[in-house]
Simulated scan of single mutants.
Amino acid sequence: MRLGFHIGYWSSGPPPGAQESVLAAERLGYESVWSAEAYGSDCLTPLAWWGAATSRVTLGTNILQMSARTPTATAMAALTLDHLSGGRFVLGLGASGPQVVEGWYGQRYPRPLARTREYIAIVRKVLAREEPVSFDGEFYRLPVDGGAGLGKPLRSTVHPRRADLPIYLAAEGPKNVALAAEIADGWLPLFFSPKTDAFYREALAEGFARPGARRTPEDFRVQASLPVLVDDDVERAADRVRPFLALYVGGMGAKDANFHNQVFVRMGREAECARIQELYLEGRKKEAVAAVPTAMVEDVALVGPKDKIRAELAAWEETVVDTILVQGDSRGLEAVADALS
């Protein structure tokens, strides 16, 4: 089991001690550092800023939201960061959800899988730099139709450091997970639990079996985000994760279109999810947080004393996950490093 550190996205401002944690991760032998974005901080600027102080760790986006940038703009950022980091960049992409895509970015959300397929195809064309980029898709057309009528296919002025720069796909539902196995170099699961390992193995196998699949199970990466909170008091540690779960299960999506909610439903938490969502959407957020049971936290997080965390890590080593992306403070980084040393 390999280790990465997931900084995440900002809440009301920069997370305190972020650069110190990034440097601690590199010192502790972590393989990678990841950043995220939702509808506040972007994922590229913090990664470049804090990553500039490192020399070894891989720097990845987990995730860069596709609707935030055109495919060519994303490819430009990937080319740039890969050069600046000395070939240490990994591009993690995700479709996000309809509330953010349509409400924040002003883009249409329907058929995210088809859009993802086209998006990644264009990014790969830019990175390959084999010819001027043109694309005749349902969602993306280069050059664009209409306008001044003067657009023409262009090729990046920058030569890629790596034409095969890794592209990972964030996914939660079985169809999107299968798509990741088919067209990407890795999968970035959110709210993975050892108890759902068989479900996801089946979805991945479907993607690997498709004609033209890019990777095999042997060279495909699965890097899962995992909150780790070290505390002698399990409930106190779980309290630090509950607001995060309540937000995603209850409020990060409409009532009938919350993909995060469905992840926990598949774990057998349908009743808990319904109650959390009901409270959250009614504006009773504190009650929604309190309604997250500790067992539900423990499905997707490691909380409590170091010995408990060490014991529970064993279940993760039996899953399809090859890398744990630790979310937490320096104590969590140290605890997981110690447990796997």
Rank of each mutant, 00 (worst) to 15 (best):
I63R: 00
V336A: 09
A254C: 00
V228Y: 13
W187H: 04
V234A: 15
L154F: 09
A25C: 11
E312D: 14
G4Q: 05
A337K: 15
V303A: 11
P110H: 03
G328R: 13
G207C: 04
L23D: 13
E318S: 13
E206F: 07
E182H: 10
P71G: 03
P46K: 05
E334S: 07
L325S: 06
R141M: 06
G97C: 14
P243E: 11
P112C: 11
E272W: 04
L169H: 04
R266L: 11
G304W: 12
R331T: 11
S67G: 14
T323R: 15
G151Y: 02
V33R: 04
H83P: 03
K306G: 02
M76N: 06
D338W: 07
D307Q: 15
D256S: 10
R141K: 10
L190F: 09
T196W: 05
L84E: 02
D329H: 09
V297M: 01
R201E: 07
A36E: 15
R221V: 03
L79C: 04
P153D: 11
L79F: 01
E334W: 05
D219F: 03
A128D: 08
G268I: 00
P166Q: 07
G92T: 05
W49V: 14
R88F: 15
E118W: 08
V222N: 04
M252H: 12
R236C: 06
A315P: 02
V230S: 09
H6R: 14
